[in-house]
């Protein structure tokens, strides 16, 4: 995989992988730094991030949020994103972790 492609792969703790646009994923400060080529960590070399403490269900929602954010970045009166109640806590923790 090239050093800097437009898409990156996020892998959850239970093995699901999500290929998302780099720019969208970089909304998360943690992911952004993981992938920053100037720092030269392993993630930036492979363009793949493996999250040991986030499961597929939550990561899917996170990715959904990335795009949701990207889409409504500059608009007003944004419709609320649908978040299932049972995922709330875990999502919040993931958000804290990823610094979204």
């Amino acid at each position: 995989m090239s050093a800097e492609s437009d898409y990156v792969t996020l892998i959850s703790s239970d093995g699901y992988s999500f290929v998302v646009q780099r720019s969208s994923a970089c909304i998360s400060a943690a992911i952004r730094r993981m992938l920053d080529p100037s720092l030269g960590f392993a993630e930036s070399k492979t363009n793949t991030c493996r999250f040991e403490n986030i499961n597929g269900l939550v990561l899917e929602k996170v990715c959904e949020y990335f795009y949701y954010n990207e889409k409504h970045k500059n608009s007003k009166d944004v419709p609320d994103m649908d978040v299932p109640a049972e995922l709330c806590l875990e999502l919040l923790m993931a958000a804290d972790y990823l610094n979204v």
Partner: peptide
């Protein structure tokens, strides 16, 4: 020698 390190892992540890 950073290229062999996983950012996620270190980050997670500090976290």
């Amino acid at each position: 020698n950073a290229s062999a390190l996983s950012f996620e892992e270190l980050y997670r540890n500090a976290y």
